[in-house]
Nucleic acid binder design. Structure first.
Lengths: 262, 262
DNA sequence: TTCCAATGGTACAAGGCCATACCTTTAAAG
DNA sequence: CTTTAAAGGTATGGCCTTGTACCATTGGAA
């Protein structure tokens, strides 16, 4: 006998709990591609910007290098850049020492508008908000732990200390960018490129939300204390403490977001 | 599969430590697509099989449904199925109640050949072996913790208990498949579809390696004790204990692999 | 026996994406 | 002022992917 179709539970009125049986393939049968190449490319470039890896005023790598590293044709890359140019995100200049320069975001009242813009973007995310926050937590706690376990020393430790110091000395304007870089460095020091790449993607989304929230000096100060505890734990090779520090740190962010959503 | 050119440091004597500064974009500038649509589709279908979601003898969902869920055209899907058919992985039958049926793997001496085949596949993975194992650990520990935190009850708890029982009663033949289903269920109960999807992908790779190793009854028994501890911790809502149980469980697998590689 | 519905099999035209080669612009270097 | 290297801009032909429609096969239901 050949069975296949959704095996139906005679499940009583317990509600959605039978969903577990409903779709055994849910984890695998997702879209092979999340849009056409061009759309995915736009997202990638936006990631570079939202993560602050290419600060305002700086320029992206040359088209040829970008296309090469993203494994797409230059034609397709240029279509993506064109869109970002039209959207006022990039300014493209020709000639030697030209390139695609990151423009300052429009002085939108995003951060000033309270939860207005935030709610709009959260709505856009839909069900994926919880997924995003949970996935971020899994990655970030795991990265902190792995990083502490391998206990960076030498140049790697110096790099972490440097990033910590820079983040601590940051102005309100720069803080998000430097905070992101510190976290991303930890993800990279986890030793798993996959962890780093997934974290980069999810953090770009989170930054998009956080940019709708005004950053207050007390938050910043509190956050920096947690950074210090985190880095100290990592450099001491104390994985559980690193994990705990990161957990507390993330709880702060989550609370901030939830506060503005209610 | 398309490989990434490894960026070579002209690195002085200090070794790879300067890598941190070398490529600030490493986490973002990865290939937008890991091959053409057709190749990725082959991988997806193989995932269904390697994870045991479609057991030997059963058939895949109809082409139209698969194409729809993977968001690809039926033409492309059929190209992928054709390859798997030619490879002896699938048998395709026409007419009503036809479909693509999963064939038993060739009676290759994979498991019997000791570390022979395993070493070949590990070589194929190259640098990504460590990445795979670390990423798996991050996902699996995170999933166990999240799952315990939300403490499944009712039908969800029943489902976990059922999977645990089935896994415990499994023959050597079925064990890998049922073990995978239990772990995947926990990943899904984490509440984060991203965690589940990433776990599915990474576990398919891991299974590919584990299938090269003969499974011994003692390993199996030990493993099942850990499963019981894990599920008990989850159903008790004891996140740290769930995490610890999972950690011990994973250590066993890792040791097994390393043992056969040395 | 006849019909029907579910499933795989095939064809074709339109659009997406790519590799490649070449052109244009720019500013520093000589 | 001229040269030159590095960057963006453009054009062409071909393969990949898709959407749509229709054909062929099969086994159960009527």
């Amino acid at each position: 006998m050949i069975e296949n179709g959704a095996s139906n539970e005679a499940g009583a009125g317990t509600g959605g709990e039978a969903d577990l049986h409903a779709d055994p393939y849910a984890a695998v049968l997702r879209p092979v591609r999340s849009g056409n190449t061009f759309e995915e490319t736009v997202e990638k470039v936006l990631q570079l910007i939202r993560l602050g890896l290419v600060p305002v005023g700086d320029r992206l790598p040359p088209e040829r290098e970008l296309a090469d590293r993203l494994q797409i044709s230059r034609v397709t890359l240029r279509e993506a850049l064109k869109v970002l140019q039209d959207a006022g995100v990039l300014e493209v200049r020709r000639g030697r020492y030209g390139g695609a320069f990151v423009l300052a975001p429009a002085p939108s009242p995003a951060a000033a508008s309270g939860g207005e813009e935030l709610r709009r973007r959260v709505e856009e995310l839909g069900d994926r908000l919880e997924d995003t926050l949970l996935f971020r937590q899994v990655l970030e706690l795991g990265a902190a732990e792995l990083c502490a376990e391998r206990t960076p020393g030498g140049a790697e430790a110096d790099r972490l200390r440097q990033l910590l110091a820079e983040t601590g000395a940051a102005t309100l304007e720069e803080y998000r960018r430097l905070d992101t870089r510190l976290h991303l460095a930890i993800a990279e020091l986890s030793g798993s490129p996959s962890v780093a790449a997934q974290y980069a993607a999810v953090r770009a989304t989170v930054n998009d939300l956080l940019d709708c929230i005004p950053l207050l000096p007390p938050n910043l100060q509190h956050s920096q204390l947690q950074h210090e505890e985190l880095v100290d734990a990592i450099l001491s090779g104390d994985a559980p403490r690193a994990r705990a520090a990161m957990h507390e740190h993330l709880a702060g962010t989550a609370a901030l977001l939830r506060g503005f959503l209610s």
